[in-house]
């Protein structure tokens, strides 16, 4: 009886520890008022430039690959909103701890360091709803067009798919930062990854504009499931009844990456504990 009670308390304490971490990140972020405004400005510039680019491309053309101009503008706006929401800092944080040798301490903490970083990243993501996503959404709605989903069902599926996307992106980053245990000074793997995601995820150019052969090659990779899958569902390029397949693939990627991460993490742990960092 006593043990059960203790576990419950412990569970509560740990949960609130994660909650606290997430809240702290939110507070820290809000205190950077300059960054709040400049990142809004950056996002605005990027999204407006893309919008004018697509408008110039669609001038006098009704639809390309079954996508109309308003759908494409919605795609671009939503892509920027998603990007402002997806914040992943695990690589940077973990690399710092590994190079300074602090990681050995983390293995003995009651809360898992990986979950700690996930909690922090979620905290930042939530704070960016307030500081980045909402202002952008309002400005877009007033000055460009409201990014309306294709149907209520599309919206619901989009939300779920976007959460999957966040997890896939986060897991990719976590796996890359895990490499740090073996290759110190991995340096700028993060920027290489960012470059690949930029090109192959459909974040800027939807993959249906690529030549067919290249499209088929990209489909094997996980990247298009980060941006293109939720966005296509949102604008109705992929109808809700067709959405189940890509979403299952998203889920499969999450399972695969999670198991890889767990495996890699236990190897890393052994490596650190045996060699002492």
């Amino acid at each position: 009886m006593l043990i059960e009670f203790n576990n419950e308390v412990k569970g509560y304490v740990i949960m609130s520890a994660y909650f606290y971490l997430a809240k702290m990140k939110l507070l820290v972020f809000l205190s950077y008022r300059f960054e709040v405004f400049t990142s809004l400005g950056t996002n605005l510039i990027v999204v407006l430039a893309n919008i004018y680019l697509w408008k110039a491309a669609y001038k006098g053309i009704d639809s390309v690959a079954g996508v109309k101009e308003t759908q494409m503008l919605t795609y671009t706006i939503m892509s920027t909103l998603l990007a402002s929401f997806f914040s992943v800092n695990i690589e940077h944080a973990l690399q710092e701890r590994i190079t300074h040798g602090d990681i050995a301490i983390d293995f003995f903490r009651p809360i898992s360091i990986l979950l700690k970083y996930l909690a922090e990243d979620i905290g930042i993501a939530i704070s960016s709803i307030l500081s980045k996503l909402m202002p952008l959404l309002v400005i877009m709605t007033v000055f460009v067009q409201p990014p309306v989903p294709d149907s209520p069902m599309a919206f619901v599926l989009f939300l779920l798919s976007a959460v999957f996307s966040f997890l896939i992106l986060w897991l990719i980053s976590a796996l890359i930062s895990l490499l740090c245990f073996w290759v110190l000074q991995l340096g700028e793997m993060k920027t290489v990854k960012d470059g690949i995601v930029l090109l192959l995820s459909g974040k800027i150019i939807p993959l249906w504009l690529f030549p067919k052969k290249i499209q088929r090659m990209i489909e094997i990779l996980p990247f298009q499931y980060v941006y293109q899958t939720p966005l296509s569902i949102y604008i109705g390029k992929v109808q809700p009844e067709q959405a189940i397949v890509p979403m299952l693939i998203q889920f499969a990627w999450i399972l695969l990456f999670t198991s890889l991460l767990c495996f890699g993490w236990s190897r890393a742990r052994k490596r650190v504990l045996v060699q002492g960092g």
Partner: peptide, 16 residues
Amino acid sequence: KKKEGLKGAVSSLFHP
């Protein structure tokens, strides 16, 4: 001066 708490953080955003 930094103000305390979430409310303080938001208000410092506009009126430091």
